[in-house]
Design a protein around this nucleic acid. Structure first.
Lengths: 347, 347
DNA sequence: CTGAAAGCGCTTACAG
DNA sequence: CTGAAAGCGCTTACAG
């Protein structure tokens, strides 16, 4: 077994308290004593066990991330942002997956009660207000990403604004008959995207045609699938009068929509939402969610909250960036990328 | 603060030992006592703290994953496999990132000494034999993914066979002048891929032309970049005699190679290696590494080793699967996917 | 500057 | 079946 603080203390002829002090960089240790301890520790290959430290300090220095098992590019980018940022602090990351099919509240409850984390970053988990309320009672630091609840720090993206920007861009480019592909319409992000789309049309004095807001029939994953996009675009192309451009609630659907266009031998401009990895390769224009920054910011917020439990709850809403790649012509791989700068505001 | 075992014991008028027994499902507790304890625990919202259990049991029930920060689809897929599999066992996953730029051995050393994990799964980290040897001395369970070292359980993919399969497929399809794009040639996977390519050509009685094995000049990330592939294909297209097909050491380079072909207005069949997410969208044929299965298997191996430290070290080598999407014609999004079944053998 | 001792929240032989 | 007690490997007032 690995040596413990007792082994070092014995060999170095000091007390365990002194050994502990050396490893905690207490200044009040003679240089000579410190060196002796470090010497012995090195020889024996000693390093304090984080576990024991955590129990004694009542601090684990762990930030726990709770994500749905559906691993996708969004989570990966968010995690990358978290991982890079956490390296600046003295915390470690622990990841727990929750199964969307099972009761999420129970799973979150279980994870939190076990108490590994000093705080919990919850990504893309959507609960009812009463359920968030339940978690709130644990009185433990929580940061929500891609969700909003007044009682916790949250980080999300302004879907209304994003949809508005995308639609306005199409309008400014000259299109006047713009359809929309949406997903299951009962979640806030989806409703907001429809709202932004409508507002843009209205601001340009164009009447919204309900039949031109479509979704596919396949409602797996709330409609956020290629298949759904394919079906939706097929519907949209059958509309009268014909749409001449399209705003799509997600990139994954936009991809299906593009395939539908190819199969139908049509080609109208489309703008998606997300900016997934393949979007760049495919040359899809889209509203980019600053996933990396969202993850990075989540860690900052979390550390701040752990260190000051009473600080005021804050909600950050990012504005998605319009990334124009190729609007219509040829969805080939060679599309030159051109990005417009985006804005970011904290409320 | 949350209640502890003492609070429950006091309220339920039993000893803490009994409370502990109830939560550990010891059978030797009267039903009446058990219910009383559970009742009180429920009321007070008690759940054993994993941290304290870990210290007392000297088992953390955590499996730690060490991955380079460069987050890519390979890691994500592997992690997904691990996450799904670990749900079958009573272990949790903890993820640590190592910075490739810094000394990896030091980082791994630090992570292991802190002792969170009962075992460590190391993904895509490449060390010298002597360095692995150093880690070996800690005498802690380790499973390597995408690397081979005799002293640890390892999971890797047969690059020689993969390259051979890809090249043979091109040969069987009728191409006779096949070039190869490779990356930095000092890593084993890359050398193996070149070897497999050569062997296939030789088996078909075709002379290997050294000039037709190229790589780009941009050696960032050991050449595994789009840019490198672009440069390499540009070189390859300038070769005399002209190559009529190409095997490429990685999908990311193949993507760059495709762009180079477009820019040069050429189009020869190409087969990549990896099967990244975008490969499917782009219709790139490739040698698929069973990333998900590799992750899943890593957990199985790890749990087995944690529970039986002395079990024999085993190396699993997966055979990559040839995924034929579209060989040459039009790299459009509509390529129909056709997969050939692959094999899998354990050595 | 250093040590003895209590405590972090559990588990687990050992008795009874 | 149940309890008293020691122990897991540390930290941290409290004295000196």
């Amino acid at each position: 077994m690995n040596p413990t603080i007792y082994d070092i203390a014995r060999e170095a002829r000091v007390s365990i308290a002194t050994v502990s002090r050396v490893f905690n960089n207490h200044t009040c240790v003679t240089r000579k004593t410190r060196e002796k301890v470090l010497d012995v520790a090195n020889q024996l290959g000693y390093h304090p066990r984080a576990l024991a430290q955590s129990l004694a300090r009542k601090k684990t220095r762990i930030i726990t991330v709770i994500v749905p098992v559906i691993s996708n590019y969004f989570f990966m980018e968010v995690l990358a942002g978290m991982q890079d940022k956490i390296a600046e602090y003295d915390y470690d990351l622990q990841i727990f997956n929750v199964k969307l099919a099972d009761n999420i509240l129970n799973q979150a409850d279980y994870i939190m009660k076990r108490g590994w984390g000093e705080g919990y970053v919850v990504i893309s988990v959507h609960l009812a207000d009463s359920e968030w309320q339940t978690l709130k009672k644990y009185n433990v630091p929580v940061v929500l990403i891609d969700e909003y609840y007044p009682g916790f720090d949250t980080i999300s993206v302004d879907s209304i604004e994003g949809a508005y920007t995308a639609t306005r861009y199409l309008l400014q480019t000259g299109y006047r008959n713009i359809g929309m592909i949406c997903a299951k319409a009962d979640s806030k992000p989806v409703m907001d995207r429809v709202l932004g789309y409508r507002r843009a049309l209205e601001d340009f004095g164009i009447k919204v045609i309900a039949e031109q807001i479509v979704t596919g029939d396949d409602m797996e994953r709330d409609g956020f699938t290629e298949n759904n996009g394919y079906q939706a675009m097929t519907k949209l192309l059958a509309c009268e009068p014909c749409v001449d451009a399209c705003f799509c609630a997600s990139d994954i659907q936009a991809l299906g929509a593009i395939k539908a266009m190819r199969d139908a031998n049509k080609n109208i401009p489309i703008i998606g939402f997300d900016d997934l990895e393949f979007s760049e390769y495919v040359g899809l224009s889209t509203m980019r969610q600053p996933m990396y920054d969202m993850g990075s910011l989540a860690i900052e917020k979390m550390v701040r909250r752990i260190e000051n439990r009473e600080s005021e709850v804050k909600h950050t809403v990012f504005s998605p960036d319009l990334v124009v790649r190729t609007l219509a012509p040829d969805y080939d791989l060679l599309a030159v990328r051109k990005e417009e700068s985006g804005t970011f505001n904290s409320r």
